[in-house]
Amino acid sequence: MIIEIENLVKSFKEVKAVNDISFSVREGELFAFLGVNGAGKSTTINIISGTLKRDSGRVAVCGYDLDTNAEKIKNKLGIVFQNSVLDKKLTVYENLKYRANLYGIFGKDFKNNLEEMTELLDLKEILKRPLNKLSGGQKRRIDIARALLHKPKLLILDEPTTGLDPKTRITVWEIIEKLRKESGLTVFLTTHYMEEAADSDYVVIIDAGKIAAEGTPHILKNTYASDFIKFYNRREEAEKYFGKLGYKFKTERDYTEVELKSTSEASVFFKEKPELFDDFEILKGNMDNVFLKVTGKDLKGV
């Protein structure tokens, strides 16, 4: 396990930001940590990265206990913050050099690491440009390069794609995927985008400082999310039929959506009432449904 957290508690005056949570992260996996603002995500990240003291509980990263080996943990961690914290007036090269120096990486070692990052993240064209002259996507690449310069074992991404346009979001994810494949990097992700969480290996949903649900996206979807059939034709007959059976349905402009209890039900109805199924779609429940069901909160617009 690359992260082990046991009974973690952190309060700010009367507010219990993190209330007795335990979870672990396996080496090499993409771990998603979901929650609305104020759920306790950032508090947990700050504790793991050693910038915030916990009230109680145990935290170990890469086998090192946070209490006794905080410095060693810092060498194994790379963090991409929600907003860039690099020096906007300095060039990309200067930023990366000064940050690498903080890890004891100087001279030739820095040049070697920089070469690798330049190739991996395609930085050659922008190395001499000041950070404040770069686009949002380019800045994100530099943030990732800064987090990876010292070759960490664990990369923490705190809402890395918030505020980025869809194209840049895809680019950022392509980079992260490439890194995971090539170096077996463990990625600890917090995000508001459920489609990003859906691609992860393991998900923990935190709500009001407590773990509300956890598991692989597949298990979570099977446990908490309903499947749906969308009828684009013969909508009235479908509504009548499922209404009689006591199923919930939603009438939209182009279709009627019937919520199923399980995926296998669809094949039963297909056999029983094949005439209804001349223009239809069967949809698996997604992580949005999981999140809504588990927390009662909609992540959209958070």
Binding site: T51, K74, L77, I79, F81, L86, L102
Partner: peptide, 13 residues
């Protein structure tokens, strides 16, 4: 103000 100090806090310095 820019939270750059947090970047130093997560670094081994």
């Amino acid at each position: 103000i820019n939270k750059t100090i947090t970047d130093f806090q997560v670094s081994p310095v």
